[in-house]
Design a protein around this nucleic acid. Structure first.
Lengths: 195, 195
DNA sequence: CTCTTTTCCAGCGTTCGCGTTGGAAAAGAG
DNA sequence: CTCTTTTCCAACGCGAACGCTGGAAAAGAG
């Protein structure tokens, strides 16, 4: 081991997240990632083996981050609206993850690496929702997994079509963000409310 | 006029919609569009003046189509759930529009051509929601424009992150689509329900 | 110190898309 | 028919990104 190998890898990963989030799949280039990391592109190929593989790595990192940042145990005790609000906040503060997810959806057409790990992440959320239903805190009129997805959609669509959001609701000033967040929270509560 | 000019333009537009929807912004090439249209790429530059400009043209076309296909007058008389269901159906049957919208959101970072026209489209929807609120058919606890956007998000997020939808709710079989649609309809009703 | 191993980069040939140009082919005007 | 106009294409030069290779530079082993 020599010459801060881990540091080099880390800088490549950080640059990759930033580039993947800023450009689209075909617009992101290994050259630019390497440049942003202050490293020769050969390092990227050697360490991560190409664009697709590098993408998988950084997406896995970002998924781990969000799982830590926006945890959820059970919607029997936690409010769905609060959760949706925190998801909205996270997407706003760290737009990388949602960009990467849409990147993946747009480019890879359903194919996913680390499928097992990913399913586990979503399984936790779905289980939290089921738990809420069993304790009567959440409506049973929508399946837990669909309800979970719909709550996430309330927080996520804003960044998927920001231009539509702007034309409908106005430019995303600080106040407008607050209004959007309040709407998301209220909407999530309405979605999940049990009779 | 000679040599079916309009036909050539039309074939280019059709090929462009298909290509823009299939690939990402930087992955879509004028060469491929021209090839799919059975035409030399010079025709594309001459008629439409480049990728960005061609994109605007076909997006305008698709917006006009959806406005005709999923009309809405007022949510005082029309059910928000039904509307959301029809939007879901439209996205499913003609995924091009939503792909183009996300394309635009991903690539152009908020810049939009035909902004006036676009605002009018969304204004109609928002007005229909306001009308519903004034007649007591729709809740006032969420602003009309935010509520409109959130209803659209319920129908749209599925196609933005199809891999997440699949891992959460299962592969999109015919039955699963029916379940998703039912969830969207129910969710939209719950969102809009007035006390 | 020398020798070996690992990290790292300059630079290569290739491919691909861009946007343009010059001129051929087709349709109409006279 | 000839002349003019319009439609269309083959093909160009250019730049950018790809993925790889040979070898230099740095760190440790002896």
């Amino acid at each position: 081991m020599a010459r801060d190998t881990e540091g080099t890898k880390r800088r490549i990963r950080e640059a990759a997240v930033s580039e993947f989030a800023r450009f689209d799949p075909d617009g992101t280039t290994i050259e630019r990632i390497a440049g942003a990391a202050g490293v020769n592109k050969e390092r990227v190929y050697n360490y991560f083996g190409g664009k697709r593989s590098l993408f998988s790595t950084v997406l896995r990192d970002e998924l781990a981050k969000v799982a830590r940042a926006v945890p959820v145990e059970s919607f029997a005790t936690e409010d769905v609206g609060d959760y949706a609000g925190r998801v909205y906040d996270y997407h706003r503060e760290r737009p990388e993850l949602t960009r990467l997810l849409r990147w993946e959806g747009l480019a890879f057409d359903g194919e996913v690496s680390d499928e097992e790990l990913r399913r586990r992440y979503y399984g936790y959320k779905s289980a939290a929702m089921s738990d809420g239903q069993e304790h009567g805190a959440v409506t049973r009129s929508i399946d837990a997994d669909h309800l979970t997805f719909l709550v996430l959609s309330l927080a996520g669509w804003w960044s998927a079509v920001p231009q539509v959001a702007r034309m409908l609701a106005g430019p995303p000033t600080e106040q407008e963000h607050a209004r959007r967040r309040a709407a998301v929270v209220e909407a999530a509560r309405r979605l999940a409310r049990s009779p």
